[in-house]
Computed example of a mutant assay.
Amino acid sequence: MENLLLLHGALGAATMLQPLKQALQHTYRVHTLDFSGHGGKPLPREPFTMQLFVQDILDFLEQQQLESTHVFGYSMGGYAALSLALHHPQRIRSIYTLATKFAWSVEAAERETKLLNPERVEEKVPAFAAALAQRHAPQDWKQVMQQTAGMMRQLGQSPILTPDTLPQLQLPVQVAVGDRDNMVTVEETLWAYRLLPNARLQVLPNTRHPLETLPLQDLSQHIGQFISQVDR
């Protein structure tokens, strides 16, 4: 069986990918991980950075003795997978990204981080705050959110995936985005697709950003179809 690593998004955790893991585990050896500071893992002494999350993946591959693996990366997880592939292409067989934000700039980071105000979230969306508290316990979800905002600002100033670096990624990539995603545009996904030398583009109809809103059976089939094409 092929290895398949599932990577969660910003403010997420491996537990969010458990239903997808269960749907795929009869076909693949499915692995999940929590990025540093997520899902109850200790908050690192250093700030959140994409480089830190890339190292998390490398460390996990070493711990699990995985020479190479296919990767599904949701949102930030897709960005981390592609960033890893830039420097360690031999460790990744293919990448399927879903709802990954590719177009980072200072202005884009400012728009995104306006939504990451813990006090405002607690006041305006208490149910979401409670979910984050449970997801990241015993760590402080407010620190996770603030650290995430800092990482986004750094990406805005120094994006890793650029018109210079994306063409270097020779491995098979499928970039998928929902047509109703209010965080990631079809246009920026198309931009990345055109720069990637060995890519497929998928626009999912009537689909928003949150992973839990996607039909699980459809998503697992999309991932399986992509990997089967890669393995031919």
Rank of each mutant, 00 (worst) to 15 (best):
M1N: 11
N3D: 15
N3A: 15
L6W: 14
L6Q: 02
L6Y: 13
L17M: 09
Q18A: 12
H26D: 12
T27M: 08
T27F: 11
H31F: 15
L33T: 07
L33K: 07
F35K: 09
F35I: 08
S36I: 03
G37I: 02
P42T: 02
P44G: 00
P44D: 00
P47Q: 01
F48P: 02
M50H: 08
M50A: 14
M50F: 05
Q51N: 12
L52N: 01
V54M: 07
Q55G: 00
I57Q: 09
I57H: 10
L58D: 11
D59G: 08
L61F: 14
Q63N: 08
E67W: 11
E67S: 15
S68F: 13
S68Y: 14
S68Q: 15
T69E: 05
T69R: 03
F72T: 09
Y74E: 05
S75T: 01
S75M: 03
S75D: 04
M76F: 13
G77H: 00
G78P: 08
Y79D: 07
Y79V: 09
A80Q: 11
A81S: 09
A81C: 06
A81R: 10
L84G: 08
A85I: 02
A85L: 03
H88T: 12
H88I: 02
P89Q: 02
Q90K: 07
S94E: 06
T97W: 02
L98F: 12
L98C: 09
A99K: 03
A99D: 12
F102I: 13
V106F: 01
V106N: 07
A108Y: 00
R111D: 15
T113I: 15
L115C: 03
L115S: 13
N117W: 01
N117G: 01
E119A: 15
E119N: 10
R120L: 14
R120E: 13
R120A: 13
V121S: 06
E123I: 00
K124R: 13
A127F: 07
A129E: 03
A133M: 03
Q134K: 15
H136M: 06
H136L: 11
A137Q: 09
W141H: 05
K142L: 05
Q146T: 15
Q147D: 10
T148W: 01
S158V: 14
P159E: 00
P159I: 06
L161Q: 05
P163V: 04
D164Y: 08
T165S: 15
P172Q: 07
P172V: 11
Q174I: 06
Q174F: 11
A176D: 10
A176G: 13
V177T: 04
R180K: 15
T185D: 07
Y193L: 05
L195G: 06
L196M: 04
L196Y: 08
P197Q: 05
A199T: 05
A199V: 04
L201K: 08
L201D: 02
Q202I: 05
V203M: 04
R208I: 14
H209K: 05
L211P: 02
E212A: 11
L214Q: 11
L216V: 08
S220E: 06
Q221T: 12
G224N: 15
S228V: 09
Q229C: 10
